[in-house]
C-alpha cells in the first residue's frame, strides 16, 4: 500500500449511504456494584457515523455505560450488539471487539516507558500484526493531522496534557476502529489545552467517525452532537437532537441540569 492510499483511507469522509444503519445496540443493560445499581435499564442505539454526546450529573453512570461498551465492566443483565453480533456472551473475545472500539480515557494513560510513536504502534504491530512500514505511515499521517509529528520520539512525561491526550486519541485511531468512545477526555486538562483536544474531536466528527462522547463541555456538545443522551441516576432520561435538548428540554431533571451551567 502506498502512502497516498493510506492517506486517502485515513482522511476519507465515510460514504453517506452507510448512514443510519445501527452499529452499536444496547438493550435493557443492567450494571451493579455490590448490589447497588449503577445502570438500571439502559437501551440505546448508536447508528453508523453518528456522534452521540452523553451528558448528566457526576455519578449518573455515563462513564460506567461507556466502560460497559468496551467490556471493561461486567454487566448483570441485558445485551450489547456490535454490527448485529452479540458482545455479551461468555464466548465473546473482547480482544477482537476492542480493536473495533477505540477508547480514550480522562487520564490519558499513555504508556510512560514508551515514546509517542511506540505507544501508537503497539496495537497495530502486536495486536493486529500489521507491517511496520504500513503502520508507521498510518501513524505519521495521523500524527501530522493533530500536529504532533515532531513529538513522535518524545516520552509522555515531556508532553503537555493536551499533547498527551491528542497522542492518546491517535493511539486509538490508528487501530482503525468502527466506533470511538471518549470518557471525559478534557476533564483533567488545563483550560487553555481543552480547545486543542476538542478541535481534534470536532474534526473527527466531521469525517463521520462514529463517536460516543462523555463530556461536560456544553458548547462542544452543541456543536458536535447529532444526538444528546441525558442520563440521571443510572437511566437514560432524555434522548433528543441538541437543538431540542438545549432549547426546550422535555424533563424537569434535564432543565435543572442545564441550569447549573448558566449564570
Amino acid at each position: 500500500m502506498t502512502d497516498t492510499m493510506i492517506l486517502d483511507r485515513l482522511n476519507a469522509v465515510k460514504p453517506a449511504e452507510e448512514r443510519g444503519a445501527p452499529l452499536l445496540e444496547i438493550s435493557h443493560l443492567r450494571k451493579e456494584y455490590d448490589g447497588v445499581p449503577a445502570l438500571r435499564d439502559i437501551s440505546l442505539r448508536i447508528d453508523k457515523q453518528e456522534v452521540v454526546v452523553v451528558l448528566g450529573p457526576s455519578g449518573c453512570g455515563k462513564s460506567t455505560l461507556l466502560r460497559c461498551m468496551n467490556g471493561l465492566e461486567r454487566i448483570q443483565a441485558g445485551e450489547i450488539l456490535l454490527d448485529g453480533g452479540v458482545l455479551t456472551t461468555e464466548k465473546t473475545d473482547w480482544r477482537l471487539i476492542r480493536q473495533k472500539i477505540g477508547m480514550v480515557f480522562q487520564s490519558y494513560e499513555l504508556f510512560p516507558h514508551m515514546t509517542v510513536l511506540e505507544n501508537i504502534l503497539l496495537g497495530p504491530l502486536k495486536v493486529q500484526k500489521r507491517k511496520r512500514k504500513e503502520a508507521e505511515t498510518a501513524a505519521r499521517v495521523l500524527l501530522e493531522r493533530v500536529g504532533l509529528y515532531e513529538k513522535r520520539t518524545a516520552f509522555p512525561r515531556q508532553l503537555s496534557g493536551g499533547q498527551k491526550q491528542r497522542a492518546a486519541i491517535i493511539r486509538a485511531l490508528v487501530m482503525e476502529p468502527e466506533i470511538m468512545l471518549f470518557d471525559e477526555i478534557t476533564a483533567a486538562l488545563d483550560p487553555e489545552m481543552v480547545r486543542e483536544v476538542l478541535d481534534v474531536m470536532l474534526e473527527l466528527a466531521r469525517s463521520r467517525m462514529t463517536m460516543v462522547i462523555v463530556t461536560h463541555e456544553m458548547q462542544f456538545a452543541k456543536a458536535a452532537a447529532d444526538r444528546i443522551v441525558f442520563m440521571d441516576e443510572g437511566e437514560v432520561v432524555e434522548d433528543s437532537p441538541p437543538g431540542d435538548f438545549f432549547v426546550k428540554p422535555k424533563t424537569e431533571r434535564a432543565r435543572r441540569f442545564l441550569n447549573i451551567f448558566q449564570f
Binding site: 468496551n70 467490556g71 471493561l72 473482547w94 480482544r95 477482537l96 476492542r98 480493536q99 472500539i101 477505540g102 477508547m103 480515557f105 487520564s107 494513560e109 499513555l110 504508556f111 503497539l122 496495537g123 502486536k126 495486536v127 493486529q128 492518546a168 493511539r171 486509538a172 487501530m175
Partner: peptide
C-alpha cells in the same frame, strides 16, 4: 488505568504483562 488502556487496544493478558 494503564491496564485498561492496554486492554482497550486489544492486548492479550500475556502481552499486557510483557509490554505494559
Amino acid at each position: 488505568g494503564q491496564i485498561e488502556s492496554g486492554l482497550s487496544i486489544g492486548l492479550s493478558r500475556s502481552q499486557l504483562v510483557r509490554y505494559v
